Computed example of a mutant assay.
Amino acid sequence: MDRWQAMRVFVKVAETESFARAARELHLSAPAVTRLVAGLEALVGARLLVRTTRSVKPTEAGARYLQDCRRILGEIAEAELAAAGHQVEPSGTLAITAPLLFGQLHVLPLVLDFLARYPEMRVRTFFVDRQVNLLDEGMDVALRIGQLPDSGLTAIQVGQMRRVVCAAPSYLEARGTPATPAALKEHRILVCQGAWASPEWRFARGQRVVVDPLLLCNTNEAAIAAAKAGHGLTRVLHYQIAPALAEGSLRIVLTDHEEAPLPVHLVYPQGRQAAAKVRAFVELAVAALRGDPLFGEPSD
Rank of each mutant, 00 (worst) to 15 (best):
Q207W: 13
I241A: 04
L214Q: 13
T234E: 03
R208F: 09
R205E: 15
F203E: 02
H187G: 02
S198E: 08
L214W: 11
Y239I: 00
I224G: 02
T219F: 08
G232H: 02
A204N: 03
E221H: 14
W196T: 13
L233Y: 00
I189R: 04
C217Q: 04
C217I: 02
A222E: 12
L184M: 03
L233G: 00
Q240L: 06
A229P: 07
T234G: 04
I189K: 05
A229I: 01
P199H: 07
G194C: 13
V209I: 12
L237D: 10
C192P: 07
S198D: 14
G232I: 05
A225D: 11
P213A: 06
G194H: 07
A223P: 00
Q240M: 09
E186I: 07
A229W: 06
W196V: 14
N218P: 08
V191P: 01
W201L: 15
W201M: 12
W196N: 14
S198G: 06
A195G: 08
G230Y: 01
A222V: 05
A222Q: 11
Q207S: 12
H238K: 07
F203M: 02
I224S: 02
A223I: 05
V191Q: 10
L215A: 09
H231G: 00
H187Y: 13
Q193F: 12
W201S: 04
G194E: 12
E221N: 08
P213N: 04
H231M: 09
G206Q: 03
Y239G: 03
L214S: 15
T219S: 15
A195P: 05
I189H: 01
A242D: 09
A204H: 05
R202H: 13
A223E: 00
L233I: 09
V210W: 03
N220A: 12
L214R: 12
P243Y: 02
R188G: 04
R235Q: 15
D212H: 14
I189F: 04
T219N: 09
V211M: 06
L215S: 05
Q207I: 06
L214N: 09
R202P: 01
I241Y: 05
L184R: 06
E186K: 13
G230M: 01
A197P: 08
A195W: 15
A183S: 11
R202V: 12
R188A: 13
A244E: 13
A183K: 14
R208L: 14
P199S: 05
N218S: 13
K185G: 09
P213R: 03
T219V: 10
Q207C: 04
G230N: 01
K185S: 15
N220T: 10
A183P: 08
L190W: 04
L237A: 12
V210P: 01
A183T: 06
A222Y: 03
R188D: 10
R208T: 15
E221G: 02
V211Y: 01
R202S: 12
A227D: 11
K228N: 12
W196C: 12
Q193Y: 11
V209P: 00
I241V: 13
A204M: 00
G230E: 02
A222L: 08
D212W: 09
E186M: 10
R202G: 08
R202I: 10
Q207T: 12
A227I: 06
A226L: 10
A227F: 09
G206Y: 00
I241H: 02
